[in-house]
Simulated scan of single mutants.
Amino acid sequence: MAAKNRTDANMDLAKRIEAIIAPSVEELGFEIVRVQVSGAQHPRLQIMAERMDGTGIDVEDCATISRTISATLDVEDPFKGEFTLEVSSPGIDRPLTRLKDFQTWAGFDAKIEMQVGVEGRKRYTGRLLGLDENEMIQIESEEGEQFSLPFDDVQRAKLLLTDELLAAATTEQTK
């Protein structure tokens, strides 16, 4: 039970940190994709960010974001003691963490794990179809079954690395 409590505490801390750093990151022209805290003895803070304009993010961008976050967290000090900060792009097989991600990445394959089972299942793999009028995530399995999943119950979701996704990423990089 201690591990679950630590995970819950890390999730609460991640949400608090996101609220602290988001304005500074957004001023730089970036959007936070995910904030994750792990480790108890030696905390590690992982930040995934992307450009608001949709263009790629490079190492210098990550360094700029890191310096800004470090300065902000030095003032707010959400950790007791030292921590490791990692800033990165979401990558090609990115996590889907925001409601808009499920619409933006419609047409690509994804894997979704739910906290609460839907139609007797907690894991779904298939083609993202976007969102319906009630903002339910729509996904179609390889067998052609369609499912509506509530965003608030998503535990983890990510794009699957496919030739189609690689081709889209390559096209985006050449623009």
Rank of each mutant, 00 (worst) to 15 (best):
A2H: 12
N5T: 06
N5A: 12
N5D: 13
T7H: 14
L13A: 01
A14N: 05
A14T: 11
A14Y: 07
I20K: 01
S24T: 06
V25T: 01
I32R: 09
I32N: 01
V37W: 01
G39I: 15
R44P: 06
R44M: 15
R44I: 15
M52W: 03
G54I: 04
G54V: 02
T55V: 10
I57S: 04
V59E: 12
V59W: 10
D61T: 02
T64K: 12
I65Y: 00
T72I: 10
D74V: 07
E76L: 03
E76Q: 12
G81H: 15
T84N: 12
L85A: 11
E86D: 14
V87Q: 02
V87D: 02
P90H: 10
D93F: 06
P95G: 07
L96H: 01
T97C: 07
F102E: 05
T104A: 14
A106W: 06
F108D: 02
F108M: 08
F108H: 12
I112L: 08
M114G: 01
Q115G: 07
K122S: 05
R123A: 08
Y124P: 00
T125C: 10
G130K: 12
G130P: 03
I139M: 04
S141C: 14
G144Y: 14
S148N: 12
L149M: 11
P150M: 06
P150H: 12
F151I: 08
Q155D: 08
L160V: 11
L166N: 14
T171N: 11
T171H: 12
Q173I: 05
Q173L: 09
T174R: 07
T174Q: 11
K175M: 11
